[in-house]
Design a binder for these strands. Structure first.
Lengths: 238, 238
DNA sequence: AGCAGAAGTTGATTAAGATCAATAGTTGTC
DNA sequence: GACAACTATTGATCTTAATCAACTTCTGCT
């Protein structure tokens, strides 16, 4: 029922393609499709580590990743996900170091955008953008905090999570209604602050309600409006 | 025990002061201290509304605000807070419209930074910054979702909330250990996805544990390390 | 293919938080 | 200052989710 997405984006769909073009400007007629240094990241491997000094932003070209915050006692908590077309490391622009360890959930490809291509010291690009960059980066940093919080009922959280994934995939040109989740139930549970079992049961309840189809990591949204309504108002049982 | 903060920032502490300087460049010797058009926002009044088309970013000069997402049924959920020195409306840069209604929690002052001062159409400032701007703005947008989710135990969430407030106030030059919360318990509860009563009880438990002092909205952090440890690992009762 | 180790589901019990309810404290206003 | 409306705390009960546990399904590997 669920078909496999390629989970890769063209440069045209990438928000950082302008930056890449700028970089490849040596040959003067930089065209889209000129791919910057690309790295293969194997499943489980980190792109960057919490506390490491800032070198590059990373545009996710293919695959999916998760960010984790280290807790005392050697454990960690999932604080976010990155899909193809999205940017890893924004918070490091203002922090000077990466705020989270970002690990590949599956074999992935990322394009590195070196700091030098948008250095905050280099004033030649105009102060306006530098200020905005800092501000936004800091905003992202703040928002990451909120990612550690907030909740509805378990079913609502899971529904909202699926809705978020759907929206983000759609934005980058993938199917919004049928996809394969790249993360484990454990990852989702950690991200949502729920027990794994609760996540599993929530999936099943959404399935019984006819809102989604689930089979392991394959998900199909049967009724997006209904899904959204679950996220907003708990369907109080009679 | 808790002393009143002024809750105002100087332009020097503001992340958008560079942009302001750029704007006021008519008289050629733009100095910091040249304040851009400033508006007084009365308690309860909105700075911008969800869905309204993007006109300005707003730098909070004085006071505090909250952002709210409208839910079906006329209700709303608090999705974030803005303190003096922070930026309202980042997500609108990439969306073209404001994603949240942002309301003053107390009488506040904001500086409007018109879109024209960093237009994405105007290519004169270099494509690099435009691309980054878009990317970061979109990131902020994504992170806002996560703000609707994730959770620890109630006590952990409240502790984490206080820690976040403390850190953000500190960043902008205010006291990190003693402050007056500008938001109601209802706002906090909505933001954290908890019942008001649970927030209240969590405050009391943190107080009994000697981690904080609370009296209504006045909060003093007695032991920040302990507070942080509460956010990471639940102090399992014996 | 077959094995081992994850990952995921399902059930029973316990603990945490929501809800209902009553009371106390604040804030703003006339 | 006194009233009204809002805000916050505290208690009792009920619902939801965490925990403990058994079992099934998937995945990767040789």
């Amino acid at each position: 029922m669920t078909h496999q997405n390629e989970n890769a984006v063209q440069c045209l769909q990438c928000e950082l393609s302008e930056v890449c073009r700028e970089q490849g400007k040596d040959d003067d007629n930089a065209s889209l499709g000129t791919v910057p240094p690309q790295s293969n990241i194997q499943k489980g491997e980190p792109v960057c580590r919490e506390g490491e000094s800032f070198n590059n932003l990373y545009a996710v070209n293919e695959g999916a990743l998760k960010s984790e915050a280290a807790l005392s006692g050697g454990e960690s908590r999932v604080t976010g996900f990155y899909f193809a077309g999205e940017i890893v490391g924004s918070e490091a622009v203002s922090m000077g170091e990466y705020g989270r360890t970002v690990v590949a959930l599956q074999d992935s490809k990322v394009c590195a955008i070196p700091e030098s291509s948008f250095s905050l010291e280099d004033k030649s690009h105009g102060n306006i953008y530098q200020g905005l960059l800092l501000a936004m980066s800091h905003q992202v940093r703040n928002e990451q905090w909120t990612g550690l919080m907030a909740a509805h009922r378990s079913e609502q959280r899971v529904a909202l999570f699926l809705f978020m994934v759907s929206k983000r995939l759609e934005f980058h040109g993938f199917s919004a209604d049928e996809f394969r989740l790249p993360m484990t139930r454990r990852d989702i549970a950690s991200y949502l602050g729920l027990a794994i079992e609760t996540v599993s049961r929530s999936f099943q309840r959404l399935k019984s309600a006819g809102v989604i189809e689930v089979s392991g990591r394959n998900v199909a949204l049967k009724n997006r409006d209904l899904l959204l309504s679950v996220t907003e108002r708990l369907p109080v049982p009679g």
